[in-house]
Structure formats: C-alpha cells, structure tokens
Design a protein around this nucleic acid. Structure first.
Length: 456
RNA sequence: GAGGACGUAGCUCAGUUGGUUAGAGCGACAGUUUGUGGCACUGUAGGUCGGGGGUUCGAAACCCCUCGUUCUCCCCA
C-alpha cells in the first residue's frame, strides 16, 4: 500500500482553518452584498478555447488541461495518435483535450457576460468566490489550487465605481481588523510616461520594470530599462517620476509638471484626483494614497489601478484590481468597460494570524458535551440534548458509556466549554449537573430548565 | 522552464570516521480498584530509515537513478 498523498500545491483544511477562512469569506461576501453586488458561480471547468490565449504565452502553459474521455476507443485510435503527436509538438489538440480548469475568475465572468449580455441589467455588478487552478510550481504562499474573491462592475464608465470599490476594500479590512493602505495609480499616467519615454510600444517594458521597484530597487530598474532600449534622457524622466514624493497635494503637483503636457496623462491625473477627493472619509484603520510606482502585472488594465497592503506586516499585496476596457470583446461583445477588485484570501489569512486578529469565537464548535453514564441515563441525556439543539446550541452525547476521566478528556481535546452530567442520581431525581470546564464551577439544576440555561 | 536544500515512528527531530537488536520528546492507546478532567507515574502499540540499484565483510550514513517535499529565479494571487 502506497501512502496516500495530495497533488502538489493543494491543501487540506482542518476544522480550525476552515472556520477562520470562512470568517474571511463571509465578511467579504457580506460587504459585497451591502454594495449591491450579486453572487455568480461558474463551473470548475471551461472549454479550453475560452481560456487559451487570454493570459499570454506563459499563462497558456499554466492552464490545467483535462484529458478527454474515451481515448481508448479502438475505432478512434488513429485519430488519437495523430492528435497526440500534435500535443508533442507543443500545440493543443481538441481530440485529446477540450476542457480545462478555470485559471482565474475574470475570464469566466467575461464569458458569462458575453453569453448573457441581452439579459443583464447594466451596470452588472457581480461577485464570485471560488477556487482557481494553476499548473505553476508551488512556493511560499503560492498554490496550485487557491481561492479568489472578485467583485466587478461591467457596463459603466463612472468613476463612482472606483470610489465604491475603494470603500469596499476599506470596509472589509476594517471588519477584519486589519489596518491597510490602499495604493492607487492610473494606467493612463503610465501610458503618458511611456509616450514621453520612447513610445507606446515601450509601455509593457516600463510597466513591468516599475512593478519590480520595491523588489529589486531603483538602480536595477534603471538598468533594466536601459537594457530595453531606453536612452539616458528617457531613463532620467522615469527616475524623476519614481522619485515623486511629499504629501498628496505636492505629489499631484509634481506629477502634473512631469506629465501635464500629455493628454492621457492629464486624464489619468484628473481621475486619480477624483477618487482621492471622494475617499476622504474611509472607515478608520485604512487610508488611500497615490503610489506612482504601482503598475500591476496584468496587461488588460487601462485606467485606475489598486493594490492593498497590510500596514506593519512584511507581506506582498493582499488585494488588487483596476479598470479595464472591452473585457468581453474577445467573446464577440465589444465596448463593455468594467472595473474590478480581488482579495487574496491566503495572504489575508497569514496577515490575520500574524496580527492575531481572528475573533476568539471563530473557532467555536461543540458547546456542550453530555456525559454517557449508562443506558437509561443516556436516554434522558439524549432527549435533553435534542431540546438544546432546537435552541441552536451545538451538543454532543459521548458515544458510549465510559469513565469520567475519558469523557472529560474528550471535552478538553475538542475544547468543549461545558459538560452536562446525568448519572443514576440525577436521572432519578430529575436534575443534571452543568459544569464549566474552564472555571471548574458546576451547578445542579432541574432537567426541565436546562433548555433555558445560557451556556456563556 | 532554471537552480539549491531536505526525505529516519502519527508530529518535531537525534543517530559519532560506515560497525551489535535504529533512539528521544510530544502525540495515540491502556492502566494507577467505575461520580469529577487538565497534572503525575507505569506500560503498550507504532519504522521495508521515501523507492530502486551500486560500493562494502557490513549502509540510515558513501555513489548513481527515481519519486516526494520545500525554497529561490521567471511569472503571478
């Protein structure tokens, strides 16, 4: 017998972890609902065509493909062999694989919007909390199966959406008791910078280089830019751009000086200013600030971009998002703009562990353990237990008659805070003993009033 | 896709230049005379030393291959 194991990069979640994760999920969901977003769920698998070509060349390689069934059908042996040789030469073949696990939630959402465009009330606001799969090599904080929590608005160009999304971030993290800073920038500002420094076609290179700033440092970024063909004057402009500092007013002034001559730049600056002005009263614990070094790796963003970092914790971003144009164009429905955000649950979990901000009652399981002290005793206990369950109190009856020692230890191990003891004496005179395991206090009360006992 | 580190009991790990029957702590289970737990004491179970091959009189240890885990880079959440 081989030892059982898990596929690389996947995890089991035990009770305590599931409860803590659910606390994060339900908090996020409740805030999404509060802002008028509706839930959407899509299948774990999509047609391969839907996913291929949407995430760049690297992304295609990281999609988990599903082997077709029936490949062993003798009648189709020749076809299967030809298809497989196509696979060997690096192309995918519909005769071998025509479905794949979803890689993110955005493309399935775009597919859904395109398929149902006629029926949707615009602007369409949906949220989605589901696992996604990537055939990436796992490493610290990175898995092959992980959850994404996305909220998107499509069919609206209004910047009010950006403002609301910033408030959602703020409200969620306030509820989770995680102090955060929401960084914002605009792809239009970055586009303007690219136009000034070597043209639009350099935008990708510049974006990627800037995105690495906090990882590799200013000098390395400049080196990388020179390597991509920017001359020293152009690198100097980017150096100047990355050095913008001071309070928000000063930063915006410097940005205007640098990029104000560019139409795209002006627009980006105006949009950032709008969001800044309308996010003055974010819930306590979070702040919004411009960060012109923010770039975001994904290339479909076109307007405001966000990234959220926990204050005082050494950890990458715990959320990100931004505005995109024409997400559904790939699926035949052009001109549908949108803006969305995403929460990184696994990192949020780690941050909350580090800050120790999970509420104590998150781990609450069984509240009361009924001792099993014999046939007739346990029958009484069972009947009483059912009454408590009716009152929404989580109970268990010990599974067999056993010594006190054993039953107490079971309660200890499962961190059950109360026991109810009904032995022969109690069974006879209609009472029961309620014991608080933490304090050791115990009371004898009538069985009739047990259902009204508050196990606090 | 490239490169490092590590695989010994359920868990965390010892294990001397290669040398008897591979150990500890924690955990599990049982007991310390069946109505009050956490402690303590005693005992029991649990290992093809990741797998395969090689070197050797002798391998957990040395060599090769393989599988797995983990970390870094690329990319991302």
């Amino acid at each position: 017998m081989n030892k059982p194991g898990l596929p690389q990069g996947t995890r089991d979640f035990s009770a305590v972890v599931v409860r803590k994760r659910n606390h994060i999920f339900t908090t996020i969901r409740s805030v999404f609902e509060l802002y008028g977003f509706q839930p959407l769920e899509t299948p774990a698998m999509e047609n391969l065509d839907t996913l291929m070509g949407k995430y760049g060349e690297e992304g295609d390689k990281l999609i988990f493909k599903i082997l077709n069934n029936g490949l062993d059908n003798p009648a189709k042996e020749q076809q299967a062999k030809e298809a497989f040789s196509k696979i060997l030469s690096g192309k995918s073949s519909r005769d071998i694989t025509e479905r794949a696990l979803r890689y993110d939630l955005t493309i399935p959402f775009a597919r859904y919007v395109a398929m149902n465009f006629g029926q949707l009330t615009l602007p369409f606001k949906r949220y989605q909390v589901q696992p996604v799969w990537r055939a990436d090599r796992p490493q610290k904080g990175r898995y092959r199966e992980f959850y994404q929590c996305d909220a998107d608005v499509v069919g609206s160009r209004s910047l009010l959406n950006e403002v609301e999304l910033a408030y959602i971030y703020s409200q969620v993290f306030s509820k989770l008791r995680v102090p955060v800073t929401i960084h914002i920038n605009s792809r239009k500002v970055l586009a303007a910078l690219a136009e000034i420094c070597g043209g639009e076609d350099k935008m990708m290179d510049i974006t990627i280089a800037i995105d690495k700033l906090d990882k590799i440092g200013l000098e390395k970024v400049k080196e990388e830019l020179s390597g991509k063909g920017l001359n020293s004057g152009q690198v100097a402009v980017i150096d100047q751009y990355l050095s913008i500092g001071g309070d928000e007013t000063e930063k915006m002034t410097q940005l205007k000086t640098l990029l104000g001559g560019n139409a795209s730049g002006l627009q980006g600056i105006a949009e950032i200013q709008y969001v800044l002005d309308r996010c003055r009263s974010l819930p306590a614990g979070s702040r919004l600030q411009t960060d012109f070094t923010l770039a975001r790796g994904l290339n479909y963003y076109t307007g405001i971009i966000f990234e959220v970092k926990a204050n005082g914790v050494q950890m990458g971003s715990i959320g990100g998002g931004g505005r995109y144009d024409d997400l559904t164009g790939l699926f035949g429905v052009p001109d549908v703009p949108g803006v969305g955000i995403s929460f990184g649950v696994d990192r949020i979990y780690d941050v909350m562990e580090e800050l120790q901000v999970f509420p104590d009652d998150v781990a609450a399981g069984t509240r009361v353990l009924f001792f099993n002290l014999g046939q007739t005793e346990s029958e009484k206990a069972f009947a009483l237990m059912q009454q408590l369950r009716e009152k929404q109190v989580a109970c268990e009856l010990y599974h067999e008659q056993a010594k006190f020692d054993k039953q107490f230890r079971y309660a200890d191990k499962k961190q059950i805070p109360f026991t109810v003891i009904i032995g022969s004496k109690e069974a006879e005179n209609g009472t029961c003993v309620v014991k608080n395991l933490a304090s050791g206090e115990q009371h004898t009360i009538a069985q009739a009033v047990l259902p009204d006992f508050s196990f606090q």
